[in-house]
Simulated scan of single mutants.
Amino acid sequence: MSDTARAGRQVGEGPLSRAAAFVYTLLAVELLVLVTTLPGLVPLVLLDRDASNLPLVATCLLPVGPAVSAALYTLRHQRPDLTDLRPAGRFWRAYRNNLPGVLRFWVPTVLWLAIIAMNLANLTAAAVPAWWGVLLVLVGVGVALVGANALLVASLFTFRTRDVLRLALYFLVRTPSVTFGNLALLAAAAGLTAVFSEAVLALLGAVLVLAFLRVGEPMIRGIRKEFTA
Rank of each mutant, 00 (worst) to 15 (best):
R96D: 05
G40W: 01
L85F: 07
F171N: 05
I223C: 10
L203D: 11
R86Y: 06
L56S: 03
L99V: 09
A114P: 00
V200R: 09
R86G: 07
A130V: 12
F196W: 13
L47A: 07
L165W: 03
A130Y: 07
S17H: 14
L47T: 03
L167N: 09
V57Q: 10
G89K: 08
A199T: 01
L156C: 03
L204M: 02
W92Q: 03
V141I: 15
A114H: 09
L34A: 09
G216M: 14
L72H: 08
L183H: 07
S69V: 09
S177E: 09
D163E: 07
N53Y: 02
L186R: 10
I116V: 10
L44S: 04
I220C: 12
L204Y: 02
A130R: 09
N97Q: 12
L208M: 10
F180Y: 10
T37G: 12
I220W: 13
P176E: 08
L46D: 14
V153N: 02
A7T: 12
L111M: 07
S17V: 05
G140W: 02
S177Q: 13
P80K: 12
L54I: 08
A71E: 00
L41A: 05
T158N: 08
I116P: 00
A71P: 01
P39R: 01
A20F: 05
M219E: 10
S155F: 08
L208R: 02
A168H: 05
P55D: 08
Q78W: 14
R6E: 13
L61M: 08
V173K: 14
R162W: 11
A21Y: 06
C60S: 02
P129T: 05
L167I: 04
L103I: 06
V33G: 11
L213D: 03
R9C: 07
R174F: 09
A148Y: 02
V64A: 14
V35G: 06
G216P: 03
G12C: 13
F227W: 11
A7W: 10
Q10G: 03
P176L: 10
T158K: 15
R9E: 15
V209C: 00
L32V: 00
L192H: 08
A199G: 04
Q10W: 15
T161R: 11
Y73H: 11
G140N: 04
R49M: 05
A28Y: 04
F22L: 04
L16C: 12
C60G: 10
V35P: 06
R214Q: 10
T59V: 12
L27S: 01
A206Q: 03
A144F: 00
R76A: 05
T37P: 04
L172Q: 08
T25D: 15
L172E: 05
L201H: 01
T59K: 07
A94E: 00
